[in-house]
Simulated assay, not measured.
Amino acid sequence: MSRVAIASIRPGSRSDAPPAASAAGGKVYRPYSYWFYLPSAVIYGVLFLVPNFASLYFSLTRWSLFESKFIGLDNFKLFFQEPALVKGFTNTLVYAVVTSGSKVVLGLLLAVLLTSQIVARGYLRSVVFFPVLVSTIGVGLTFTVLMNPERGLINGALSVVGIDGPGWLTDPKWALLSVAAVDVWKGVGLATLIYIAGIVSIPREYVEAARVDGAGSWETFRRIVLPLSRPATVTVIILSLIGGLRSFDLIWAMTRGGPGFTSDVIASVIYKQYQAGFYGLSTAGNVVLFVVVTAIVLPLSWFLNRREVDL
């Protein structure tokens, strides 16, 4: 058979394409396939886009359940004049940095431990991940009792060894960091799980080659595990940072922003405005929180993802 004949019956050749594809330069258009996006697009629009644009509109109004009055940027001006806002903004940044940084470090260390050959490895993985499954409000109420300065189990245990425990949730110096420690305890299991997935996906040939070259455990961790776990690290940083910047339920369950305003974050300031009946003001605060989270997370995500692993 000649080459011309072979080319004429070769699958995917130009003569094999339908007339519509040939007329379009070889590209096959399937209009019906785009209809599969429609249900997701409708759900996304109804549940996300519409509420977001509605929030943006109501942040420019003074509104109640039955009426609204457009007042422009007055809500934003008033929100930034709120005395607790500066303190709440500072606390939010401190809380997010402390919790996300701790989850990265502890999650990586626990993942290295739980991917090694240790006894009861599967059980220990379950123990580490269990707090993630527990209700945040339940965790907050439980640790509020445990951290009671007079009758709490933590200070009771410290007194046995001669240490006078502080007022974990009543001392302004300790309140925010105490809640952050509980947040880390509850969320480090998810960070550990992500790191375990990242470490397990590393080809064993790299580790074996490092051992053949005489690398010890520290060198293997530094040269192999740590660089190749970079995608997991980026994921943990981004998720933990978003959770820290938006944190509300644990702080509200344990301190309600107190004592005073020492553990207030942006979300708790917004909620207090909503409790006081300033609905437009609290909606403007939600818009501010959205902008703050976006302004921090998007550039950070771009910066972390643009660098490639260099072995």
Rank of each mutant, 00 (worst) to 15 (best):
V4H: 12
A5H: 13
A7G: 08
S8A: 14
I9Q: 14
G12T: 06
S13E: 04
P18H: 11
A24N: 15
G25K: 05
G26Y: 05
V28F: 05
P31Y: 15
Y32E: 14
Y32I: 14
S33G: 03
Y37V: 15
S40P: 09
A41G: 13
Y44H: 09
G45W: 04
L47Y: 13
L47W: 13
F48T: 15
P51I: 05
A54V: 13
A54F: 10
L56E: 00
S59C: 05
W63M: 05
S64M: 03
L65C: 00
F66Q: 08
G72V: 01
G72L: 01
K77W: 10
L78H: 08
Q81E: 14
P83L: 03
L85T: 04
G88N: 00
G88K: 04
F89L: 15
T92F: 01
V98K: 02
T99M: 01
T99E: 02
T99C: 01
S100G: 03
V104D: 05
V104K: 06
L106W: 07
L109E: 02
L110D: 10
T115I: 09
I118R: 11
G122L: 06
Y123W: 14
V127F: 12
P131M: 08
S135I: 10
T136I: 13
T136W: 03
I137H: 03
V139G: 05
T142Q: 09
V145F: 10
R151I: 11
R151M: 10
R151D: 08
N155W: 03
G156S: 14
S159E: 14
V160F: 07
I163A: 08
W168Q: 04
L169V: 03
K173F: 02
L176R: 01
A181S: 12
D183Q: 14
K186G: 01
K186I: 02
K186L: 00
G187Y: 08
T192R: 03
G198C: 09
V200Y: 12
S201A: 15
P203M: 12
P203W: 12
R204P: 00
R204M: 11
Y206V: 07
V207T: 13
E208L: 12
V212E: 07
G214Q: 08
G214L: 09
G214S: 11
G216Q: 09
S217M: 13
F221K: 06
F221G: 00
R222P: 09
R223A: 11
L226Q: 06
L226I: 06
P227I: 02
T235D: 02
I237C: 11
I237F: 08
L245M: 12
F248C: 06
D249P: 02
I251Y: 00
W252N: 13
T255A: 01
G260D: 08
D264C: 00
I266D: 04
A267Q: 07
V269H: 06
Y271D: 07
K272A: 10
Y274G: 04
Y274Q: 13
F278H: 15
Y279G: 02
T283E: 07
T283V: 05
A284S: 12
A284Y: 01
G285N: 00
G285Y: 02
G285K: 01
G285Q: 01
T294R: 04
A295Y: 01
V297E: 05
V297K: 09
L298Q: 07
F303I: 11
L304K: 10
N305H: 09
N305Y: 09
R307P: 00
R307E: 15
E308G: 11
E308K: 14
E308V: 13
D310I: 10
L311N: 06
